[in-house]
Amino acid sequence: MPESREHPDAVPAESREHTLTGARGALFVREWPHPRPRYTALVAHGYGEHSGRYAGVAGALVAHGASVFAPDHAGHGRSAGERVVVEDFEDVVADVHLVAGLARAAHPGLPLVLIGHSMGGLIAARYAQRHREELSALALSGPVIGAWELPGRLLALDEIPDTPISPAALSRDPAVGAAYAADPLVWHGPMKRPTVEAFARMLRTVDEGGDVGSLPVLWLHGDDDRLVPLPGSRVGVERLGGALTERVHAGARHEVFHETDRAETLAQLTAFLDGALGR
């Protein structure tokens, strides 16, 4: 199996590996354990990437008192499935729920928080609609939610163009883009029509799926995010509701956890979790 490449500032953290039986076959899960955790955290990664790119986030959460669990979604990273094909995002939500069960079994009774980036933000939003009673907090980073125009534009074409994500769109830190470009577990090809269709369906589902009540929600976004523009996400975040905390980063691109001001972003995340968890 190829080695993953984490972003250059990744905080070293001991990790364990699990394999569960997900909706589409073998589901690979990374765990960054804490010897005496105060809470558990789930991390849902974005399109075309994998959980190993979140070692820095996991390191900050472990230092804050969490045990962290993060799956490679079906068709991504080290999990089973045709590369980057997601036929139904409800299956991916079910997989994340399976990982939540793993976390609860390891640490019964602890609060559970969910952090989703980009496509993972769409997954996390739907998870919160379906299972909000299980969550103590929800954090969304550059979430694909609301008025995201890309699926409609692509589906209007006879053929989806072979235009991979530009590494420069991720962060102002060139080392982040370089690590992404060299990572063999990242998908560097075009989007696939079944996945684009699934995105379009799930965007509608979340829009119509109701709010999340009083659940504490943190929304993090870069105001120079050209992959998932901020105004479109705002529409979805406002519909999702919850007790919202908004943090927009001036000049930041798509991956705020890997941006040049990532220490500030991680501090915002842990401060939000302190408030949500009553600590």
Rank of each mutant, 00 (worst) to 15 (best):
M1W: 01
M1Y: 05
M1E: 09
E6Q: 13
D9S: 15
V11N: 08
P12T: 09
E14K: 01
S15L: 12
H18A: 09
H18L: 05
T19M: 07
L20T: 13
T21I: 03
R24P: 01
R24H: 04
G25Q: 04
A26Q: 09
R30W: 08
R30G: 00
P33L: 10
P33H: 14
P35N: 08
R36S: 15
L42S: 11
H50M: 08
H64K: 09
G65N: 04
A66S: 15
V68M: 12
H76G: 09
G77D: 01
S79W: 10
A80Y: 00
V86R: 07
D88N: 14
D88W: 07
D91K: 14
V92Q: 11
D95E: 00
D95S: 02
V99E: 06
A105T: 14
P108C: 08
L110H: 04
G116M: 11
G120L: 04
L122D: 02
I123L: 00
A124V: 10
A125M: 00
A125I: 07
A125S: 14
A125W: 06
E133H: 13
E133S: 11
E133D: 15
S136P: 14
A139P: 12
G142W: 03
G142Q: 03
P143K: 06
P143H: 09
P143Y: 06
I145T: 11
G146T: 08
W148H: 14
E149N: 11
L150E: 13
R153F: 11
L154S: 09
L157M: 15
L157Q: 14
D162M: 02
D162R: 02
S166C: 10
P167W: 02
P167E: 03
A169P: 07
A169W: 13
L170T: 02
S171Y: 01
S171P: 06
R172F: 01
R172K: 09
G177I: 11
G177E: 03
D183K: 05
L185R: 13
V186Q: 00
K192H: 02
K192A: 04
R193F: 13
R193W: 13
T195Q: 02
T195S: 08
V196F: 03
E197W: 03
E197F: 03
E197M: 04
A198E: 06
F199L: 15
F199W: 15
F199A: 11
A200Y: 03
A200M: 12
R204W: 05
T205V: 12
T205I: 10
D207P: 02
E208Y: 08
E208I: 09
G210F: 01
V212R: 12
G222M: 02
D223C: 09
V228L: 06
V228E: 03
P229W: 07
P229K: 06
G232C: 08
R234T: 12
G236T: 14
G236P: 09
V237S: 04
E238W: 02
L240A: 12
G241P: 01
G241K: 02
G241I: 08
E246Q: 10
E246C: 13
R247C: 10
V248S: 06
G251D: 10
A252M: 12
V256R: 10
F257E: 05
D261K: 12
A263E: 15
A263F: 11
Q268T: 15
D274T: 12
